[in-house]
Amino acid sequence: MLADIDSAQPELRAAAWDRFCEAYWQPAFRYLTRRWGLPTDRAEDLTQEFFTGLLSKEVVERYEPARGSFHNYLRVCLDNYVRSRFTAQKNAAALDFDVADSSPNPEEIFLREWQREIMSMALQDLEAFSGERHKDVAFQVFSAYDLAVEDRPSYEELALRFGIPTTQVTNFLAWSRRELRRLALERLASLSMTEGEYHREARRLFAE
């Protein structure tokens, strides 16, 4: 649980912080480029500054689960940080406030990036888990079908390609999706402060 972030034990605290940075660095970075229209190098610098500043200010500890989801709290902190950072440097002109104001719902943008990151991490976990369970073919079938960028192959085509019955393609896909969901939820549990927050975030992740 992310509650370890203010643990008295340094190793627990460090591990929780690593998990936190791993899960939120990319969403924060992509949010800065999408919502604030920042160039990549500037967004990277600002994301890094934000996480460093966040750690020292212990903003995470100030989060109150009763007031909303953690990822949304973090987004508000990020927006505030960007505004204060540019105002302090008196170079607000460098920041495209028009882009920020005309962008679609910021909450939606950050939610999307957060979903993208959790699912990306869960996919990496699924690949590793499939290897451990000697289910590499299942992962390959899943990749060929569910991660197809363009036209998805039919189950029959996949059966021919991998030399397995069509029913096995169905089973492999069902297994992979089930495990992907479980692994995404595991990631989510490790990033949640409380059990209640975990359930709420799970519903937001899968839009349930």
Partner: peptide
């Protein structure tokens, strides 16, 4: 990063 159509597909099939 996962492309939007793939992300939407994954979220849909894992929510089913």
């Amino acid at each position: 990063p996962l492309a939007d159509p793939i992300l939407s597909h994954l979220l849909r099939v894992t929510a089913e």
